[in-house]
Amino acid sequence: MGRIPRSYLINRLVTFVLTILIAATIIWIIPRLSPVDPAEIALGRMAAGAGSVANSEEILAQLRANMGIDQPLILQYFKYISGALVFDFGLSTAAFPTPVSTLILNALPWTMGLMILSLLITFFIGNLLGALMVWDRSPKLVKVAIPAAMVFTSIPPILSGLLLMWIFSAQLQWFPLTGAYSIFVEPGWTWDFVKSVLHHGFLPALSIVVVTFGFWALGMRGLMIGVQGEDYVKLAEAKGLRPRYILYRYMIRNAILPQITAFALKIGLLIAGQVLVERIFAYNGMGKLLYDAILNQDFPVIQGVSYVIILITALSVFLVDLLYPFIDPRIRHEAT
């Protein structure tokens, strides 16, 4: 790690670890403040299944012992934290006895796949459009159409998702209404399955892309205005370089760097937005898992999903912070 001073590294690492620790602690404390007793919920579920439950006191005690909530709080806390570090959140109460980590592992690839795909598309489109808005040679249509289209970028993806779902799934029936793949296709690395996944993933991805590209375009516009007046751009023009070459190699390349840090700050909101998109499309990711867990009052799963998403967010911010000096050599981390 040649270029990163150690103090900076330690600073970022401490922030990262604190974020995880604080988030995990809040998630742990909240249900303990609640008057709801998870053992009673589990008993209620049994009673609903069987009609009546004999020896309910004994069963409650046994359930509490199983869940570990009869132990002193401080012991519970350390057990939970050390479990969270290795992604052990106990067993799901609704899908008993599946471990929460198994449920999350099944959902995670879907969420990550959808997120990475839509992020890459938005980052590319958004930055290009933002740059074109400032470039003095871009067609007039671009300068009028993009600001108009950008009005829609303030809308959260769940609303665009609803609209797209209604138009393309319910009315035109071009795309399936819900799910991540067709129930008639066997999951596996076959062409049919991949086709089905792409077909199902298109609308959720589109609903995120439509409303987030403007965030990048707006940021890029501001940065490009700054770059536009720089001496090296003037020099490149004076040298008689082709305008397109100047745009890509001189202007965009320099302007795009702060966008990467903007990404780090935005990722939390992006993930939260995507969770909601997954919920309305009943996409097999973390969003659906979370929603089902809320319906079933399945606290271990709710805690696990929240924790993993916060971990992903914090980890991406941490990585962007670390990679940034390598991407932008102009940044020098001062030892503060």
Binding site: T15, L18, G268, I302, S306, I310, T313
Partner: peptide, 24 residues
Amino acid sequence: RVGADVMITIPPLLILVVFQSAFG
């Protein structure tokens, strides 16, 4: 500063989901 840096990466939705599903 550290407090703000830490809290800014936590998506509010996820914490509030835990809170509201616990409290109804």
